[in-house]
Structure formats: C-alpha cells, structure tokens
C-alpha cells in the first residue's frame, strides 16, 4: 500500500465512532470497534475502500473476560492490504448480527461458529448443523468444554491387545526396511 492510500484509508476509518486503528505492517491493519459499529465499518470498507473479499471470520473464546471475540478479515484486491476488524460480544446470550448481506462467504463462517461456539447470528441464511450432525453435547470449541472429561463420562475405555500385536512386540516390534530396499536408494545413481 502506498503512503497516499494509507492516509486516505486512515481518514476514512476515522468516520466510525469509537474506532482504534493499529497498523501492524504495510499490508496488515488491525481495527478495534464497538460491536454495534461493525456493520457500518464493513459497509464503509466494502463500498468505499474496495475491501470486497471476506477472507474469514474467526472466533476466540475469552472465558476469563466472559466475552467472545469475533474477527472479520477483509482483503482489498486493489490496494493489496488486509484489514482485521475485532469486536467483542458478551458470552451470554452470545447473539450477534449476520453480515451475509454484505459478504456471502459469511454464511459458511457464521454457520461454523454457531456450531462450534453456539453463537447465534441473526439474519444468517442457514444455521443448520454441518460438521457435527449427530452431536448433541455442548458446543465443543468453547473453553469450558473439556474433551477428555466428556469422553470419560460418556464412553468407556477398551483393552486392545490382539494376538498379532503381541507377536510383533515379542519379536521386537516395528517394521524395519533394510537400506537396500528403501525406495529412493534403489534409484540408479
């Protein structure tokens, strides 16, 4: 990004109230905004600054602060820079707005976050389960979900020591390929 574009973008972003802009490198900008200002920010970035590609929406569970952090990464094909917009929302009830109207890729990411963190996105076209179709436990990516404890509570351990494994262990274990049979050394030099 040239210096001119940088200035222009900084001035443009100042239009949003309560915004904090940090330039991490020439192609990476971090922006922190209050949650209710995000749709306006994205509209501005997409409509007036050419940030038309939503690369991803990431979710981070800050359980000690009782908050979820949502990060919207948008890329501009024109000035070749990536803006990451960070917002925080309360963990309970964990509801936010969908940005599907602005960016269609949001549909997938919001569905994924809903499934993994239990956040409800109002206005998102599809909140059905996608990956964890048969899962009826709590959203597993939340920090309070302990996978090991869940397994110990719901499943039992099984002894597994078949005969072939016992024989292998008795012989010293493992499969050893002599050097002359290794594939790359077979090649003609």
């Amino acid at each position: 990004m040239t210096q001119e574009v940088t200035h222009w973008l900084d001035n443009l972003l100042k239009e949003i109230e309560g915004i904090e802009v940090r330039r991490k490198s020439s192609r990476r900008v971090r922006v922190d905004v209050p949650a209710d200002a995000l749709p306006a920010l994205l509209e501005l970035l997409q409509g007036r600054a050419g940030y038309i590609h939503l690369s991803a929406i990431s979710c981070v569970d800050w359980i000690d602060d009782d908050e979820f952090e949502l990060v919207y990464h948008v890329w501009s094909y024109e000035n070749h820079s990536l803006v990451s917009a960070h917002i925080r929302i309360a963990r309970e009830p964990g509801v936010y707005l969908s940005v599907y109207d602005l960016y269609q890729p949001a549909g997938f990411f919001e569905r994924d976050i809903h499934e993994m963190y239990g956040i409800q996105f109002e206005g998102s076209p599809n909140m059905e389960k996608f990956i964890l179709t048969e899962w009826d436990g709590p959203p597993p990516m939340r920090k309070e979900f302990d996978s090991e404890a869940y397994i110990n509570e719901h499943l039992s351990w099984q002894e597994y020591n078949p005969e072939w494994l016992q024989e292998l262990v008795a012989e010293g274990g493992g499969v050893i390929i002599p050097p002359e049979e290794q594939r790359f050394s077979q090649k003609k030099k």
Binding site: A56, P105, F108, F109, D112, F130
Partner: peptide
C-alpha cells in the same frame, strides 16, 4: 489458505483457526 493464531503467552496456542480455501468452493 490462512491461519489465525492467538497466543496468551502460554506453552500452547490459545486459538488456531484454519481457513482452508475449500471451505468456500466446496460448500456454498
């Protein structure tokens, strides 16, 4: 392909988000 990685200063990552390119063209 993108990775969003968060550290809280500990010995393990606090959060790793993998954005595979196929998550767009294989689904919607």
């Amino acid at each position: 392909l993108c990775y969003y990685v968060v550290s809280n200063g500990g010995p393990k990552p606090y959060r790793v988000h993998v954005r595979g390119p196929s998550s767009m063209h294989a689904v919607q």
